[in-house]
Each structure stands twice: as C-alpha cells, then as structure tokens.
Design a protein around this nucleic acid. Sequence first.
DNA 1: TTGCCTTTCAAACAAGCGTTTGATACGCTC
DNA 2: GAGCGTATCAAACGCTTGTTTGAAAGGCAA
Lengths: 208, 208
Amino acid sequence: MTRGAASEQTRERLLDAAREVFSECGFQGATVREICRRAEANVAAVNYHFGSKDGLLAEALHFESLRMLQDSNARVDASPEVRLGLFIREFMHMLLDEKDSSSQCRIMARELADPTPALDKIVREAIAPLHDFLAKLVREIIGSRVSEAELQRCVNSIVGQCMYYHHSHPVLRRLHPDLNFDGQEIDAIARHITDFSLNGLKYLGGQA
Amino acid sequence: MTRGAASEQTRERLLDAAREVFSECGFQGATVREICRRAEANVAAVNYHFGSKDGLLAEALHFESLRMLQDSNARVDASPEVRLGLFIREFMHMLLDEKDSSSQCRIMARELADPTPALDKIVREAIAPLHDFLAKLVREIIGSRVSEAELQRCVNSIVGQCMYYHHSHPVLRRLHPDLNFDGQEIDAIARHITDFSLNGLKYLGGQA
DNA sequence: TTGCCTTTCAAACAAGCGTTTGATACGCTC
DNA sequence: GAGCGTATCAAACGCTTGTTTGAAAGGCAA
C-alpha cells in the first residue's frame, strides 16, 4: 500500500469513529482517546491529521444527507401537507433509528442542546437551511394570513416536537419502560407529529 | 454568630450558587471551584457539607414551585383548555425568564438533554409528575377517543415545544438575531404553543 | 543502496477536574 | 480558662483531559 493511501485510510477511520462517538456522547463527553481506540489509531493521530479535537469535529461535520432529504422532498409532486408528512417521517428515522448510518442529524441535535465551538458552522450549514426549508413548506400550508414571527414559531413547534424524542430518549425510556424505538414505533411517532402539526397549523390564522 | 448558624449559612450559599451554576452550565460543565467562588466558600466546603459534587446536586434539587404550579392550576375553576393555556404560560416563564428566581425548571431542562447520576430522582420527582399532570389535562380535552399511547405522544408534543425554546436558545439567537426573550415575547410564544396544541389536539381523534 | 519525508508510536506534558489532608481558628461545654 | 468538636482553609493528591515530543518505521525518489 502506498504511503498516501494509508494515511488517507487513517483519516477516514478517524472521521468515522469521531462521528460515532460525537453523536453518542456529545462533544464534551467524547474523548480523543476513545475515538482513536475505535479508529485503531494512535492518540497523536487526531492532532497530526486535524490539528485539534475542534478541528476533527469541524471536518467530521457534513450535512449532505440532510440536504438531500430536503432537495428530494422539494421535488415530490404532492401537496405541501403530504410533503411535510414525508419529511417528518424520514427526519425522525435519521434522528432515532440507530441503524441509520448517517449520524449527522444526531450530532446536530446534540449540538442544539449543548453548544460547542462548531455551533456557528452547524447553524449556518444545517439548522438555518432546515428552518428555511420548513418555513417555506409551512407557508405553503397556512398561506399568507399569519405574520412572519408566527410562521417562525410554527417551525419551532414542529422541530421542537421532533427533537424532543431525541433529547429525551433516556427520560422517555424511564417514563415508559416498555417503549422501544423500533421502525414501527418511529413511524407511529412521525404520523402523530404530522397530524398534530397539520391540525395545529390549519386552524391557526382563524383565531389568532 | 453561633457556630451552627454560620455553618447553615454556608450550606445555603453553596446550594444557591450550585442551582445557579448547574442551570447555566449543566452538571458536567459546572465546576466545584466556580460554585465555591460564587458562594464565597472554600473548595473543600462542598465535600465537607455534601460529600461530593453528586451529593450537592441531589440536595440542590427541589421542585416545589413546579409542583405548586400544577396544584394551583388544578384548583382553577375553568375549562381544561383554559387551564392548559395558563399552565403553558407560567411554565414558559419559569423556563425562559432569567429574572425568574426558580432555576429548577432550567436544571430539569438541562438534565433532559444531558443526563447525570441524578436523572432518576429528577424523573421521579419532577418529570413524571409533570407528564402525569399534562396527561390528565389532555385527557379532559380530547376525551376517551384516543389510545393511551397516543395520549402520551400528545404530552410529548406539548412538552417538546416548550423545551425547544430552552434547549435551542443559543441557536435561535443566531437564527433570529433581533429576537430577545423579554416578558412580552415569552407571552407570545406561550400563546402560540397553546393555540397550536389545542388545535393539534382537537381534531386528532377524527382522522387518526 | 542511500537519504529524505511522511506517518506512526509510546511516552510525557501541562492544565483542569473532584477530592483529601492536616493545620488552624473558634464558638461551646465543663 | 482548659479541652473538645465543628467549620474553614491552603495545599496537595490522583486522575483524566487535550496536546506535544522525539524517536522509530517504512515507502519513495535519487
């Protein structure tokens, strides 16, 4: 194996392990030693390849699959109500399904509750586009009868419901011990959030 | 001053400072040294009076004002819809208004996103009662036409919306730089969550 | 083969953490 | 006032953290 290719492999193993550990433990909770252990690399490798733990996080972040989710949703030929339901379903799977390979949504969710030096980048590249996307979708549903500020609050309501299931996983497990987040349960949750939110939106302008 | 009274004062100063720092930085982020600095006490004081940092957290937790909020709400002679609105308004003030002296809700919210050894106690004494309270209230509103599992999801939707504004404070400040959480804005947010949720609940059974 | 340069490694470093220690101060009881 | 017991204090301990270091390894060009 050539030198460069081996080095590139190490980099990739570190990035994969970093995404795994960051999404599990958060940035503070994750340790460089644990990341290197999983990547089967030396402790010094992180600083050699990425300069610092911060640098590793910055490079580990990429939000293509979240962006792709939005792009493909925008191309669906259906009512905004249906598209919202589709989006929530796929988004909840990315958030909750641990079999889902893309940990980026879980890192984003972690960051929401516990900011790090990379928060600015995450807001710029993931959260702001997500909010814009949902704002457009919600605007299509409610029309122009509510103010911009109220529209933002609607987006917050939708995102907040979704995030709660991720943030409060340990709590919900204690509240409802027999509950486990398999694919079927995630679908049921997504359906609930969709129905709840569509009703919440539909009759909003009338009584505001 | 007597010996015992001085010691008691130190204990109280430590507890006050602990609630402050825990609610600001979370359990991991809070340091014993910072708590002692604010309490104007020696670093060893925490271990002398409470045994450990864990012990300090356990004693710093008390949820009377959250319980009182529920009790007084239950005694209000009004429709469940109105009572839900009242509760959300006061709850949001406890969560978001930094002038609000009771930091317990903010500690609870922090714990939700970042569990500590005290999570079991917090779930038992604060979160579970809160969920039960809201479940009863929601049941009054929607009647018996939806399942228990769906009822729980409705509670999650309401709590999730409320918590989002707390968890995502740093993010929302970046998304909407001109937004600040004064009393008026908190009222508007509470009104939105109430309207959104009441609509979400009202038409839920019909299409489930 | 020789020498260079990138990569890896074990080991150590400095800083921060929660915690412990032994001395000191000082109300309290007798 | 002597002796006891509690509370406070500066200092240090042991540990973990992210990071640095200097040597070793080994492809690669000459």
